[in-house]
């Protein structure tokens, strides 16, 4: 192993490296929310159900959804176990982070 002191213009390696960035695009937004199926994904943290419950209530007052699917995770630190099933049924989704 080298015992050389650092010298000017010696290269030091960057510890960060490339990220595995995925190429996705934002989903197109619907022109109207009436008639759509809304999913709400609650991460199970304290207060999330109260907060998202109020959001759901106000959205339902404004729009005539075909259906509303409310999912509450029982493990905040894990992905929603039935998210694929929810994604098949819903047109739009509201969720929270850290709440």
């Amino acid at each position: 192993m080298t015992t050389q002191a650092l010298s000017p213009r010696q290269r030091l390696k960057n510890p960060v490296g490339q990220a595995d960035t995925k190429n996705q695009v934002l989903a197109p937004r619907p022109t109207a929310l009436d008639g759509k199926t809304l999913a709400i994904v609650d991460n199970g943290k304290e207060g999330a159900n109260i907060f998202l419950g109020r959001v759901q209530q106000r959205l339902k007052e404004r729009f005539k959804f075909a259906d509303v699917i409310y999912v509450r995770k029982n493990r905040s630190g894990m992905p929603c176990s039935n998210i694929d099933e929810v994604a098949k049924k819903a047109d739009i989704v509201v969720t929270g982070l850290g709440i």
Binding site: A27, P28, F51, I92, V93, V94, G96, L97, G98, I99
Partner: peptide, 8 residues
């Protein structure tokens, strides 16, 4: 699908 994410 279109989503809205709320974050503290």
């Amino acid at each position: 699908m279109a989503s809205a994410v709320l974050a503290a």
